[in-house]
């Protein structure tokens, strides 16, 4: 049943986004929100999203600018990011680890993360040079 709900959500979200501007994301968020398990949480601040987004950095790099080996999220189309996250959640896109991360978030957070990453500049990631261990 839950999965069914998620599939419906996902389909709606997808159709909606193809037709709408990405700033409608927030409204879509509220629309889907009612079915979400975390529905009792309300406020969502930019600092909340910035901190949450930064915890993706361990795998996707600072502000989504991956050094390689994982997708760059910076500058990614917001509707694409939402669709991927919803697909990881409902299993329609198979993943090694992303289903774990996508399922723990509210739809509202996913939408806000999508807007956040779409607004980040693509830059080449910095790589700290390794050194000889001082004995």
């Amino acid at each position: 049943m839950d999965q069914f709900k998620q599939m419906i959500n996902c389909k709606n979200v997808h159709k909606f986004y193809r037709l709408t501007h990405r700033y409608l994301l927030v409204f879509v968020g509220f629309f889907v929100f009612s079915l979400n398990v975390y529905a009792d949480e309300v406020q969502i601040s930019s600092s909340h999203i910035q901190t949450l987004a930064a915890s993706c950095a361990a795998c996707h790099g600072s502000q989504g600018n991956s050094v390689g080996g994982t997708s760059v999220l910076a500058g990614l189309d917001a509707s694409h990011l939402v669709l991927q996250m919803m697909s990881f959640r409902n299993g329609s896109r198979s993943s090694t680890v992303m289903h774990r991360h996508a399922k723990g978030l509210t739809v509202e957070e996913i939408n806000a993360l999508a807007v956040y990453f779409s607004e980040q500049k693509r830059v080449s990631a910095l790589i700290p040079p390794s050194q000889l261990l001082e004995q």
Binding site: A54, A58, C59, S66, G68, G69, V97, L126, P128
Partner: peptide, 16 residues
């Protein structure tokens, strides 16, 4: 492979 990517990305995030 993803674990290597994790390490490289977290080093980049933490140390630059």
């Amino acid at each position: 492979n993803y674990a290597q990517a994790w390490a490289k990305n977290i080093w980049s995030d933490v140390l630059t």
